[in-house]
Amino acid sequence: MLLSLRVSLLAVVFAALIGLPLGAALAVGRFPGRRALIILVNALMGLPPVVVGLLVYLALSRSGPFGVLGLLYTPTAMIIAQVVLVTPIIAALTRQTVEMLDAEYAETLRSLGVSRLASVPTLLWDGRLALMTALLAGFGRAIAEVGAVMIVGGNINHVTRVMTTTIALETSKGNLALALALGAVLVILSVLITGAVSMAGMRSASQEVRHA
């Protein structure tokens, strides 16, 4: 259970570090190929986890380009696979949020002498509530995912076995009660975390409209 959390949370953190600036750049930047890139990022949201697992597996396997690092069947490999899965989600949702906010802010920020590049931190900060939802969507994808972590992690007991892969294993062994119980724990865990974050978000949102 802790491994599940650690892998998925770290994956979301790294995906956010890549996805937030990337999404903001796509929203604010004006460069050739921007539209194509936006479509690509949006399309990548639908990447099948099994395929991502396979590609990361190929990259990390002994004969692959990163084979020397010996990362296959480690939690690190699982984090890498999940970062690949989650980054497009965060980037695409960030792009949309920041673009909408920018449409509202652009004229004012420009008038205040803020350059396009300098407006990115402002937009990210002022869009923080909506961006939190983007991170939650990414976390939801990561914590629920089986295929990729199964392939690159190998579902090794005490090393790379996470809750989803355990549930898959126990189900195929016929231990339905155990699988169901683990499933319940996973659901509670996921709901608790997303619920807590959105509650924090909602509280600051309601503060914003109070005294309106």
Partner: peptide, 12 residues
């Protein structure tokens, strides 16, 4: 500096 018809205030 400029003031617009519809003020756009930061979410702060």
């Amino acid at each position: 500096a400029m003031v617009f018809q519809q003020p756009v205030l930061l979410r702060r």
